Computed example of a mutant assay.
Amino acid sequence: MLKTLVLMLLQAAYVFSCGTPAVQPNTGRVVNGEDAHPHSWPWQISLQVKHGSRYHHTCGGTLVGPRWVLTAGHCIWPGDVYRVVLGEHDMSQQEGTEQIIDILRIVVHPNWDINHVSDGNDLALLKLDKSPIMNDSVGIACLPQAGEILAHGAPCYITGWGNLYTHGPMPDKLQQALLPVVEHSVCSRSDWWGINVKSTMICAGGDIVSGCNGDSGGPLNCVGQDGRWYVQGVTSFVSSRVCNEVKKPTVFTRTSAFTEWLSEVMLKY
């Protein structure tokens, strides 16, 4: 009970600013993915891994608290060194909005198993070494209420710097694509994802548009009734054959199924 109260107080501290980008995203039309308006998804981060003396983009993630980033468990490998870049849009150039911050602590969900991806729990929380400066380019996404289930067809957006198509190039600029939610009763049909999709997951897309390699860990952005943007999912997996496959929607870890774990970790550390 005390933990819940403390979490509510913590959330209240930034709830008035979460999910409200200074630059409004372009949500006016259905497209097969497009360049996002610069900094219209200010909670989107680039998780970068160190290879030799350089860092390279490996996954996406979402700023969900002043010092907390939510990403996928499969993005984290023991022994690797990571950093987070916030305020990023075009990776091919320095735009002056980037904030590069080291990671103080990595907490992977205890039930995540890389050998059993379809078991779920594909989550990790990264505690930043310091709080970023909140501005028009860096902001926090809202976390959904525990147990919230989105309606079939609800319009959500995937964002990231993942491959533009199967084995295709990585874009310099942040991409966005409309992915309508596919309810669990449909996504779990035998000719869709079947038993590979658990109730703790959320499916979206499943036709022309999907996530792809490099989008992992990034958010499924869905606007709430209050007009704010919520991270309803964390990009987990797509078809192993091709990124865009009919009846194989992008599968996300459903954030609202893990609110208790998220609050426990953020309070503990």
Results as ranks from 00 to 15, higher is better:
residue 4 T to C: 13
residue 5 L to T: 14
residue 6 V to T: 13
residue 11 Q to W: 14
residue 12 A to T: 14
residue 12 A to K: 15
residue 14 Y to D: 08
residue 17 S to V: 12
residue 27 T to Y: 11
residue 32 N to D: 15
residue 33 G to I: 01
residue 35 D to Y: 05
residue 37 H to I: 07
residue 47 L to G: 01
residue 48 Q to H: 08
residue 50 K to M: 11
residue 57 H to V: 00
residue 61 G to H: 01
residue 64 V to H: 04
residue 68 W to H: 08
residue 76 I to Y: 03
residue 77 W to A: 12
residue 77 W to G: 05
residue 77 W to M: 12
residue 86 L to W: 11
residue 87 G to Q: 06
residue 88 E to K: 11
residue 90 D to M: 05
residue 92 S to V: 03
residue 93 Q to D: 07
residue 94 Q to P: 03
residue 96 G to P: 07
residue 97 T to L: 06
residue 97 T to D: 11
residue 98 E to P: 09
residue 103 I to K: 01
residue 105 R to Y: 10
residue 108 V to I: 13
residue 110 P to S: 14
residue 110 P to D: 09
residue 113 D to Y: 14
residue 120 G to Q: 03
residue 122 D to I: 01
residue 124 A to Y: 02
residue 126 L to G: 02
residue 139 G to R: 04
residue 139 G to Y: 02
residue 145 Q to A: 13
residue 147 G to H: 15
residue 148 E to G: 05
residue 150 L to F: 06
residue 159 T to G: 01
residue 160 G to F: 00
residue 165 Y to T: 08
residue 169 P to I: 04
residue 169 P to N: 09
residue 174 L to Q: 09
residue 182 V to S: 06
residue 187 C to S: 10
residue 189 R to G: 08
residue 193 W to M: 05
residue 196 N to M: 08
residue 201 M to I: 01
residue 205 G to S: 03
residue 219 P to G: 01
residue 221 N to T: 03
residue 224 G to R: 04
residue 225 Q to S: 09
residue 226 D to R: 07
residue 226 D to H: 09
residue 228 R to H: 14
residue 232 Q to D: 02
residue 242 V to T: 10
residue 242 V to E: 14
residue 243 C to I: 03
residue 250 T to Q: 01
residue 254 R to Y: 02
residue 260 E to V: 07
residue 260 E to S: 15
residue 262 L to V: 14
residue 263 S to H: 14
residue 264 E to S: 15
residue 265 V to A: 11
residue 268 K to W: 10
